[in-house]
Amino acid sequence: MPNTSDQPDDVLIVALAERDLGALATLYDRYGRLAYALAYRILGEGQAAEDVVHDAYISAWRGAASYRRERGNVRGWLMSIVHHRAVDVLRRKTTFRPAPLEAAAERAADDDTAEAAERNVEHQTVRAALEGLPQAQRRTIELAYFGGYTHVELAELMGVPLGTVKGRMRIGLQKLRRALEVQGTYRERSR
């Protein structure tokens, strides 16, 4: 496989569409860890998370030609595939719902490596922006995105009207956007 480790994502995605295994390996090296963290957070179980990341990358391998730059960067596209697949798997499990984010963070701490800690420092501003939201908005966003709850389920779970759930999501995401812009961290994460 040719060395593609220094290539920007936009080049890699073209190579991926041309069935370049090196491009697939590089995209995994670049975002596989984040993909696994996301799948694990949603599913709360290692083997299921591994299966989801595997399926997501193979889906990207097959569908790279359908990627459109104007709809988002490569990292976001990959995470979107992982998220959809993980939530899909989660919703088929009727009895399991993942623990709140705080508990998940504690469970993950034992597995963290020095590299992971470094990465966490790099991205702490995003976490700080989320934690800076009012608790009701933050929990609504977290439970929807990481917990796989629909807005109807959230309304029942939180004991609030559907409109309130929608409002918390909208205002929360708007605040999050502004916070990231102010902190200067709202940027292209894809290389």
């Binding site: 993909a35 996301l38 988002g72 984010l101 995003v126 995401l173 990231l180």
Partner: peptide
Amino acid sequence: VVQELPETLPGREA
């Protein structure tokens, strides 16, 4: 904005 949310997660080695 939503695609930034995975960045809030603790690192986890695959």
